[in-house]
């Protein structure tokens, strides 16, 4: 079988329902017994993702753009096998790593060193891999002299740097990124960006969710435009971005017109 021609990610007819419950949804046994168990039903369902189809070839970088609540992060998590789609299939070929929820498993009472090991295995490294890459992780985080102090003595920026340094030392075939390229100061951001580019040139498939159009322009060759759970456009990055920007400006135009009418009427 030719590995290279097999798509890294295949998404077919993917749908995900989001269940919205009444605000007074029973959350304790007592409440639900009082109301009768059969009535613990979502009061409303809407589609967080509706009939999404696309493929990502190995080594390609895809940016997912769209307004808030479009279902971008849901899509990313589903590809990472978090949660189950209500319909459709997701096929992922290769070792997946995710740059999201940086610092999962971090604990303020443990030292930087201890946290590197815990967060490292949570990110999908074995302990041996963490040991081998330990120096490189510390160097990337620029925290050499603080590494044996408890995490609670770190500033927020230092914690984020450590978390990011661990995450980028996983060697995945597919990298999922959710809005994390804006961490740290300018020079650290540049460093993170360089690292992602390095992943890209080494043949890693990248699936990126962001609001930052410039990142998509710089990093991605393809893009997906999602709105309200629907895949509006897919294809080469630049045309898709244009379509997104046009629809956004149309929306804000409509909004301001509506606003003005409302002001005039009152």
């Amino acid at each position: 079988m030719n590995y290279k021609t097999k798509p890294a990610i295949v998404v077919r007819e993917l749908s995900k329902k989001y269940r919205r419950y009444d605000l007074n949804r029973p959350s304790t046994l007592q409440e639900s017994i009082q109301r009768g168990l059969n009535r613990v039903r979502p009061s409303e369902c809407f589609w967080s993702l509706r009939n999404i189809n696309f493929e990502v070839l190995p080594g390609h970088a895809v940016g997912v753009i769209g307004p808030n609540g479009a279902g971008k992060s849901t899509l990313l998590r589903l590809i990472g096998k978090v949660g189950r789609p209500d319909n459709g299939v997701i096929e992922v070929n290769g070792r997946v790593s995710a740059l999201l929820d940086l610092g999962a498993g971090f604990h303020p009472e443990m030292t930087g060193r201890e946290n590197i090991f815990v967060s490292g295995v949570i990110s999908g490294l074995t302990r041996r891999e963490v040991r081998q890459q330990f120096d490189s992780i510390v160097e990337f985080s620029e925290l050499n002299e603080f590494i044996d102090y408890p995490l609670r003595t770190y500033s927020t920026g230092m914690q984020v740097r450590l978390a990011f340094a661990i995450s980028v030392h996983v060697q995945p075939d597919i990298l999922l990124i959710d809005e994390v390229l804006t961490v740290g100061d300018m020079s650290f951001q540049q460093k993170c960006f360089d690292r992602i580019t390095q992943f890209r040139t080494s043949g890693c498939t990248i699936f990126l969710v962001t609001h930052d159009i410039s990142v998509v322009k710089k990093l991605c060759d393809e893009a997906l435009f999602l709105r309200a759970g629907q895949l509006i456009a897919k294809g080469k990055a630049l045309p898709v971005i244009d379509e997104y920007l046009n629809s956004e400006s149309e929306n804000s135009l409509q909004f301001s017109v509506a606003n003005r009418t409302a002001t005039a009427a009152s």
């Binding site: 998590r77 590809i79 096998k81 978090v82 997946v96 995710a98 929820d101 999962a104 498993g105 949570i122």
Partner: peptide, 9 residues
């Protein structure tokens, strides 16, 4: 919760 949300955990 934060661990459950991680892909592959």
């Amino acid at each position: 919760r934060e661990l459950i949300k991680r892909p592959g955990f």
